[in-house]
Amino acid sequence: MKHMAFPTSETLEALISPLVASHHLDVEGIKVNRAGKKSSVTIQLDGDQRPGLDLLEVVSQEISELFDATEERGTLNFGAGYTLEVTTPGVDRPLTLPRHWRRNRGRLVKVTQDEKQSTWRIGALDKEEARVVLVQKQGRNLVVESLVLANTPRAVVEIEFAQAPEEQLELTNMSYDEAMQWREDHA
């Protein structure tokens, strides 16, 4: 058997993506740490329905079996072995794709754009998933904005300990078009 290099995160993502997709999940990140006798592979998965521990355990087992089978065929080489960790992304992970915004609807987000930071509540995406509704309380008024995702704002979910205000949640639960109509009606 010829000697193969330890697999890259790109190689592993290409390998596991179909398996992960069969569980209605997305690969959000893979980190490969080569460390002497025991290397580690950490895989972050998420879905529109946040995966619970039972599902992560099932997917972890299936990924492990897939890695073992490809290693037996000589397609992959993990060297002396590896530990596998399958988890969900932390809340401090920036929202970079439309699905990240969709999955955090109703939550607070800190948006940094043009060196300015502001905190908003995430609403609906438009049909093309190109724009997202943002809701904010300014004084006594609620403000509804449309953020263009292509402008690549830096955005990170804010941890919130209090119950979200009902009036804001009503707006974030509206469709994109309904929220834009609300904004027109209240301008």
Rank of each mutant, 00 (worst) to 15 (best):
M1H: 14
K2R: 11
K2D: 02
M4P: 00
M4T: 13
S9W: 07
L12W: 08
L12K: 01
E13C: 07
I16H: 09
P18L: 05
P18S: 03
H23M: 04
H24T: 09
K31Q: 15
R34G: 01
R34C: 04
A35C: 07
K37W: 04
S40F: 01
V41H: 09
T42G: 02
I43F: 09
Q44H: 06
L45M: 12
D46R: 06
G47S: 14
G47C: 12
D48K: 14
D48W: 09
Q49F: 05
R50A: 07
G52I: 13
G52E: 15
L53I: 08
L56E: 08
L56P: 06
E57W: 06
V59K: 04
V59N: 04
S60Q: 12
Q61C: 02
E62A: 14
E62K: 15
I63R: 00
F67W: 04
E72L: 09
E72M: 08
E72K: 13
N77V: 00
G81I: 00
G81W: 01
L84M: 01
L84G: 06
V86Y: 04
T87K: 01
V91C: 00
R103A: 06
R105G: 07
G106V: 14
R107M: 03
R107C: 03
T112E: 08
Q113I: 15
D114G: 02
E115S: 04
E115G: 01
E115H: 04
Q117I: 05
Q117G: 00
Q117R: 12
T119E: 08
R121W: 15
I122K: 10
A124D: 00
A124P: 00
L125V: 05
D126A: 05
K127D: 15
E129I: 02
A130F: 00
A130H: 11
V132K: 09
V133C: 09
L134G: 03
L134W: 13
R140P: 02
V143A: 03
V144Q: 01
L149H: 12
N151H: 05
T152Q: 14
P153Q: 14
E158F: 11
I159G: 12
I159A: 13
E167I: 11
E167C: 07
Q168I: 15
L171F: 12
L171M: 12
N173R: 15
S175L: 09
Y176L: 11
A179I: 13
W182E: 00
A187Q: 14
A187C: 01
